[in-house]
Nucleic acid binder design. Structure first.
Lengths: 272, 272
DNA sequence: CGCGCAGTTGACAATAATCAACGTAAGTGG
DNA sequence: CCACTTACGTTGATTATTGTCAACTGCGCG
């Protein structure tokens, strides 16, 4: 798919390795087989858990495609308060902020060891010339991220602590599994602490703990030391106020969405 | 700029009127002269204050460019709680959500009488073929909206009621004036109620009122019956925790951003 | 001039933060 | 394998912030 050709311009050096990675953008989740096809990936960065991808206040001239691992985006206020903006799973695009050469205002930190593919901003122009749909696909991805952000805003602004936490855990479960637990007890490793949950939901770590105790007592779920057990999926879904359609938008598996992606990916392959 | 040519396909009928409007997308604020150039705009919708543009739960096959007036996006929870997601000023793009034909999950309501230009989704594909940069410009616009949403999330999650309200009023002032008040007393008409402010900041209308009373007592600002007076701009800026750079990202007047838009707009005009 | 919506105020309740102490699991070097 | 270290989690007492309810006021508009 990614044919090898000499690069006539310096910016093109990165294009070939990036091409395959960019191909995965619109799906929202990267296809691991692409890595083998594209051969050696020279532009990858490997992060250890807890390490930052971007340093706040520095300019940023690239976007990043998360290949492996979990990360999260955050803001730090002057007095140290932290707000986690969202959690990034493989396939996410990080560092695409409006002003191209401007200093960034959001950090991105690895929750687990992680690998990101670096796509310089100037390569984007070349890529989008060869692949006319790239821009619209990126726009769609950004729009989806914005919708997710709207969702979080609604949670933090108008839902109770119980609802917010139930919702967040459910979201992370569904997004990482790319599916709804169904109606059986489910268990998984979630690489976040209660402090992370607090910073994502606008609560204190201490209060998160109390709410988790409540949810445990009610037999809905258990979470401690990065291990989540969903004991009563239906009760959890009820508490979180989730409907089926929303679940689909998280996984990108909705019927209409699949159709839309099909269109775009189709046009994409024609162009290549 | 928008040359007239026969439309070979039905979707093209809308293209000509939309073309000019779409040209304004990347600026973030529409250029009113464009209206005259494009001649009669057949696809406009006129809304009265309080009227909804989108009905929650219905499918949506178009995007909208707000030409005139103020609007806001919102969510309603099952029990009636409302969260205002953002305020839209002329130039904003509404209704661009991920699944193309899916039912929408966010409402959009007019605060004043308003005019929007309707751009059917299928026209987007045609337009972006003739105007290859359109996608990237849209992506940039979406990314900027996401950043704004991240900002609101941080406010609601981690700032006090006073900070949130100060920040929101300052944001609306700066965005609508496209500039910072400077250091003199400023006054303006803000077409929102205290209830709106509450729903945008995750507070109650009652509590917003108390905070506004505090801010009035301290001589920082006054707001009542849709009239905002900023009495001490520097104190307000301090309370809101705003830095100069953020102001620029709101107005889109930052140096690096202007450069980026120049690049894009330039490529855009070449294509036309 | 009277109706309605927006704003204002007070008393009270609920939710969540803060502070501080202690418990417990995971990781490390000897 | 152990003691040691550290980060994470747990709990109670107390305070602060914000919400709820309800009554009342004032502005604007036909």
């Amino acid at each position: 798919m990614a044919s090898i050709m000499k690069a006539p311009r310096s910016a093109r050096v990165d294009c070939e390795t990036c091409q395959a990675r960019v191909d995965g953008l619109c799906s929202g989740y990267s296809d691991s087989t692409v890595e083998f096809i594209s051969g050696y990936r020279t532009n990858d960065r490997h992060l250890k858990a807890g390490q930052d991808l971007l340093n706040l206040g520095e300019p940023c001239d690239a976007i990043f495609n998360l290949v492996d691992g979990w990360m999260f985006r955050y803001t730090i206020l002057a007095d140290g308060r932290r707000q986690i903006l969202d959690f990034a799973l493989p396939g996410a695009v990080l560092g695409f902020h409006s002003p191209l050469g401007a200093t960034i205002s959001f950090g991105a930190q690895a929750l687990t060891d992680a690998v990101v593919c670096v796509i310089p901003h100037n390569a984007l122009g070349h890529l989008s010339q060869r692949q006319p749909d790239l821009g619209l696909r990126l726009a769609l991805l950004m729009a989806r991220e914005r919708s997710l952000s709207f969702d979080h805003l609604t949670s933090v602004g108008r839902r109770s602590a119980h609802e917010r936490i139930a919702r967040l855990l459910l979201e992370l479960f569904v997004r990482s599994r790319a599916g709804w637990p169904g109606y059986q007890i489910e268990e998984m490793h979630l690489p976040v602490t209660q402090e992370h949950i607090g910073d994502a939901t606008g609560l204190t770590g201490v209060h998160v703990n109390r709410v988790l105790r409540d949810l445990g007592k009610e037999g809905i779920l258990k979470f401690s030391y990065r291990r989540l057990s969903i004991l009563e999926p239906d009760k959890l879904m009820d508490l979180a106020g989730i409907d089926q359609e929303l679940l689909q938008s998280w996984t990108g598996s909705g019927r209409s969405e699949a159709r839309a992606q099909g269109d775009l990916a189709g046009g994409c392959r024609q162009a290549a």
